[in-house]
Design a protein around this nucleic acid. Structure first.
Lengths: 145, 145
DNA sequence: TTTCAATGGTTACAAATGAAACCAATTTGG
DNA sequence: CCAAATTGGTTTCATTTGTAACCATTGAAA
């Protein structure tokens, strides 16, 4: 009979791996500031780009618009970001980190980079190249977002 | 100022990629039988191994025990599996697919394999090797589960 | 034994999520 | 112009999920 070996099945392996890595990383922003993943991504997006609309945030960080909406509301509640209405289109609001938001972002960036560095450091040079280029190759073939 | 480029950040890329692949694949079992992911994994686990306890299922397929419990309950409701109490330890139940469950499994296996094949077929030979060995390398370095 | 800790599994509750409905503002096509 | 469709964003509701409490059974220790 034809069976499927789950442990070798790429979609499963990929998911499991991503889940483990993501969960490990989440400890950092969860522990440090009690952020959820959508909140962390919002912080990261705004920190990186400076100012964005909620829609742009959703596209950049692959989040459903309700997630963005809720994350933005929470970061606003914390006074980590402010909303500025668009001059020409009153539906749009431009989101920007406050001093406090930026401070949190500046604190998170080195931790994130260290995490990635240490993750890759566990691998040999060829293995590092393999995972990075393999992910890039698949990304390129899929319609992400 | 030091910024983090989210689009290049490996944990994020990995998660996004796995999510996209998994979501694409989920269409198959969702559309075909209206299964959730935990239910599909339960089916896959039992189809592959024949008989397992709920705990073993959770370990094999990286699922929280409440997920397993619920998935098993649903598959039982569908009469796709049966529970057999252990002779010596009355806490344990051995789970086995019924004819109907096995039929569904047999139908899913070729679809799953085709999905994986076609996913990899989009890549060149080296890219395929890269993603597979890259994932394997990271798996080996992480405590999965 | 009798008690206490551990194990297999389920359930209750709260939080996170997604789909769809929704509101407001804007654009488009007659 | 003006109705209809679109867009940015929020809210409601049902579903999914995880944490923790729980029940029953077994194992270990005293």
């Amino acid at each position: 009979m034809d069976i499927l070996e789950l442990e070798s099945f790429l979609p499963y392996r990929l998911y499991r791996l991503a889940d483990a890595v993501s969960h490990e990383f989440s400890k950092i922003y969860k522990h440090r500031h009690g952020l959820t993943r959508p909140e962390w991504r919002t912080l990261a997006g705004l920190g990186q780009r400076g100012t964005m609309t909620a829609t742009a945030l959703g596209e950049q960080s692959a989040m459903h618009k309700t997630k963005v909406s809720r994350a933005v509301a929470e970061l606003e509640r914390r006074r980590w970001l402010t909303r500025t209405p668009d001059e020409n289109d009153r539906r749009i609001e431009h989101l920007t980190l406050t001093k406090a938001g930026l401070a949190a972002y500046r604190e998170m960036v080195p931790l994130a980079k260290a995490f990635e560095r240490e993750l890759l450091a566990r691998l040999g040079a060829e293995e590092q190249a393999a995972i990075v280029s393999g992910v890039a190759a698949l990304e390129a073939k899929l319609t992400l977002g």
